[in-house]
């Protein structure tokens, strides 16, 4: 279980995450939602030890993420950030195989290669496996990064805006894939999502942030209400139930 206690991040006088305490449910998909600048990405980066905290602690399965040796943590928890620009020319297969680094330390075993091939297949990248990532479209590249993180095979998988650069079809494909990763492989998936309706349709749990604080959290049914959404986004949004899903109508 990931547990955040009193986590804060400040730059000078500006606090971007203030005193967040939260237990992420084990298993399933948890989505963090909130307006721009709410501190969602910062929180995710602190949980994954990419960003040092100003105060507080984060533990994953009881391991303090700031104190646990990085290579131990890399077998438990993985993260993909929102903006990824790798200038190095690597093939998709190279990239995905690097996901095995925590295990192989660069010496790939047949098992590592099998896992990489499986991850490539999972993301339907077989035909692109030998292409360089700088020759791919944004969406294809995003899928390659996700394949790499899945290849890392950790219990906790964190994604900041995984739907970045994806069109409708691939966005839905990605969410279904993450759903399968949670259901079939038993992973705990934590996402930062901008699209409220994707969060509503695919999450088991939602966390709403605003101004650096967590102001609501609960199952989608509890979060997808006119009142909560007004609290979070300052917008009056109609929530309708369509085919058993809570959908917010916020386009007009």
């Amino acid at each position: 279980m990931i547990e955040v206690s009193n986590a804060s991040k400040s730059y000078g006088d500006t606090m971007v995450v203030r005193d967040v305490s939260l237990r992420f449910p084990q298993g399933g998909i948890t989505s963090i939602i909130g307006p721009n600048g709410a501190g969602k990405s910062t929180l995710l980066s602190m949980i994954s030890r990419l960003l040092p905290m100003s105060a507080g602690t984060v533990t994953a399965d009881g391991l303090d993420v700031t104190r646990t040796p990085s290579d131990v943590l890399a077998k438990r928890l993985s993260i993909l950030r929102q903006e990824n620009r790798i200038p190095a020319r690597l093939t998709v297969r190279d990239l995905v195989e690097f996901g095995r680094y925590p295990y192989s330390k660069g010496r790939l075993t047949p098992e590592d290669r099998k896992q990489a091939t499986a991850a490539i297949g999972y993301l339907m990248l077989e035909e692109l496996a030998d292409r360089f990532i700088d020759e791919l479209s944004g969406g294809q590249r995003q899928r390659a990064y996700v394949a790499m993180v899945l290849c890392q095979d950790t219990d906790y998988v964190l994604f900041d805006e995984p739907l970045n650069n994806l069109d409708m079809k691939h966005a839905v494909g990605m969410m279904k894939l993450l759903r399968r990763a949670a259901d079939d492989l038993g992973k705990t998936v934590v996402l930062v999502l901008h699209d409220l309706n994707f969060a509503s349709c695919y999450s088991d749990y939602m966390v709403a942030m605003r101004d650096g604080a967590v102001i609501h959290h609960g199952p989608p049914d509890a979060i997808m209400t006119t009142q909560v959404i007004r609290d979070v986004y300052d917008m009056d949004v109609e929530i309708q139930e369509i085919q058993g899903r809570k959908i917010s109508i916020y386009y007009t």
């Binding site: 994954s48 030890r49 990419l50 040796p69 990085s70 290579d71 131990v72 943590l73 890399a74 077998k75 993985s78 993260i79 993909l80 950030r81 990824n84 790798i86 690097f98 996901g99 680094y101 925590p102 993180v149 890392q152």
Partner: peptide, 8 residues
């Protein structure tokens, strides 16, 4: 970020 994520 990638380096840290992979435990280096």
């Amino acid at each position: 970020d990638f380096t840290t994520n992979l435990g280096l």
